[in-house]
Design a protein around this nucleic acid. Structure first.
Lengths: 322, 322
DNA sequence: CTGAAAGCGCTAACAC
DNA sequence: GTGTTAGCGCTTTCAG
């Protein structure tokens, strides 16, 4: 009987009596509508696919958490898959999202130019791309890394640092490019040459970072300041600095890209480039919901930019005179 | 035509000629089977619901990652929801998993006695419970915290420590109970009274941990060793110890429950209770796949126990003589 | 406002 | 080994 459906979906044209009758029956039978049948008939799965590089990365984990909370209040459920910066795996995931007819997808591919991934994006499935340069016609939320990075580097330059090392991940994606760009721009704006040899693009394992930082500190002309990316990288850098017998900020200044909890309780607190995951999640959800509900008809891709903020803290001081 | 379906599902009784014909047609039309229709008809969603307390917790993130990788090779996709130790939210999530007819679920409820959650578990949906005492008829993977904890405490007792502090989360769930139990058991086995006042069950925020550790260190009869739970807690404890001007291991010994990467690069390396997420994921997947495929007919709940290991490292030394 | 009827796109059962 | 047929459980349309 059609009325039951009307009650379940909260349609308006149902009499109070019928509504109650149906509700009683539902309660009595412990009836639960079959999602598969609803999806088949209504052509809406109420499911959003989320492909991130790796939940193990705390920034992504927080972001996912916030997105999940937000979209669930709207009745959506999230499928989460880790792309692991592996193009083949990412293509598989995209195919899967398509086959399962996700109402929308949120993606952060590790490879911005893979034709398979670009092709998969070229459908009418609502999508939001997160912080990747992909030249497709999807909406996107971008993080603006440059001003915060410039601000951080300028802070160090103002303090008198010239040998500033930048440790970012080796993966060739927008955020890393932008960080390097901001780094260079700060030197340029200061009329100084950028120490290219101190830009280190490395794997993010704790051991590799530890070795890298230790090596730099023990080199003939060591950096007096470090800017390092990521929670694990920060922890490993702290370990290496203390292993080298250097102190923060007297011997070495340090700034973190990303702001894990322990950066704030560290003594001294570690200056950080931060971005609010709630804000990012909200932007993503808003763009995606607009498209999924077809609230927003204009097909032109929209771009929402969220700024990183530089928060200076006690971890930076003038370099020790030589 | 039924043959198409047979080809897609890789049935055996299809001739080579037909198979090729169908495959050509599929490629030509770019045909993708509708998951909703398949699910409706075949009564299998090929989807597993996963309710953990919080992906933001690195241990859970790694575990999810490993489970996702494993189950995807078997053709399953994961729905991830964060319960956040909130009973109402957890009930909602369970209801959702049921309504969407998950082929199986993997759950770690924050509340082991909530009647709603227990009721939701009382269905014929294959399920694996992870490290919770729930007295239901589901399969479960349990972590054995006790021997490793006893081992760690005994290690400290052997070194001469008597004032050992234990910092675990306040949430009333099996892992925390077990840790405390192991802690007490070690003292008992040693014929010593357990310092109950040093068992601190607290919130896991970095700030709270920092204050707690600092407070303990500055108390009249301070602990000479700490056992702390969790990545963020470890980082905050390290900060507090160094803020108090104490050194590891000369002034204070430290053991971590959980083994984040930076524990190993720390100087000295931090002794840790560790468990391999891959092993855990594998156990979970195996139990669940057995049930989902009905390979394993015996309805009696099965229990798979994975041991934590204590890995002593340089962070423990005899207490400073007073 | 309500009931009847037609399908959504598949797979399973059956006849050939 | 292959084609035909009947639904899976809903939502939507269309009469009434």
């Amino acid at each position: 009987m059609g009325s039951a459906s009307r009650v379940i979906n909260g349609a308006v044209n149902v009499s109070q009596a019928t509504r109650e009758k149906v509700e009683r029956a539902i309660a009595l039978l412990g009836y639960r509508p079959s999602h598969a049948a609803q999806a088949l008939r209504s052509r809406s799965t109420k499911t959003v696919g989320c492909m991130i590089s790796d939940v193990t990365n705390p920034l992504y984990a927080r972001l996912f958490q916030a997105i999940e909370a937000r979209l669930r209040t709207e009745g959506y459920v999230l499928l989460l898959a880790n792309g692991l910066n592996n193009a083949e795996r990412e293509r598989e995931i995209m195919a899967l999202f398509q086959q399962r007819r996700m109402d929308g997808i949120i993606v952060t591919p590790g490879n911005e130019r893979d034709p398979g991934i670009l092709a998969a994006l070229n459908t009418d499935m609502p999508a939001v791309i997160v912080d990747r340069d992909m030249r497709t016609r999807q909406d996107a939320v971008m993080f603006d890394h440059v001003p915060a990075m410039k601000c951080a580097v300028t802070h160090l330059l103002d303090l008198g640092h010239r040998r500033i090392a930048l440790l970012v991940s080796r993966v060739e994606v927008r955020p890393n490019r932008r960080r390097v760009e901001g780094f260079r721009a700060a030197f340029r704006a200061y009329g100084l040459p950028c120490p290219e040899e101190l830009i280190r693009r490395q794997t993010t394992s704790a051991r590799a970072t530890f070795d890298e930082v230790l090596g730099l500190l023990q080199s003939p002309d060591p950096p007096t300041a470090f800017i390092v990316q990521g929670t694990n990288t920060l922890a490993a850098a702290l370990n290496a600095i203390s292993a080298a017998g250097r102190r923060i900020p007297d011997d070495v200044s340090l700034i973190s890209i990303g702001d894990p909890d322990f950066a704030q309780t560290h003594v001294p607190p570690i200056g950080a480039l931060r971005i609010d995951p709630e804000v990012v999640a909200d932007r993503i959800a808003t763009l995606l919901l607009d498209r999924m509900r077809r609230t927003f008809a204009d097909p032109a891709p929209r771009r929402s930019v969220v700024r990183f903020q530089f928060e200076p803290r006690g971890s930076c001081a003038p370099p020790r005179p030589r």
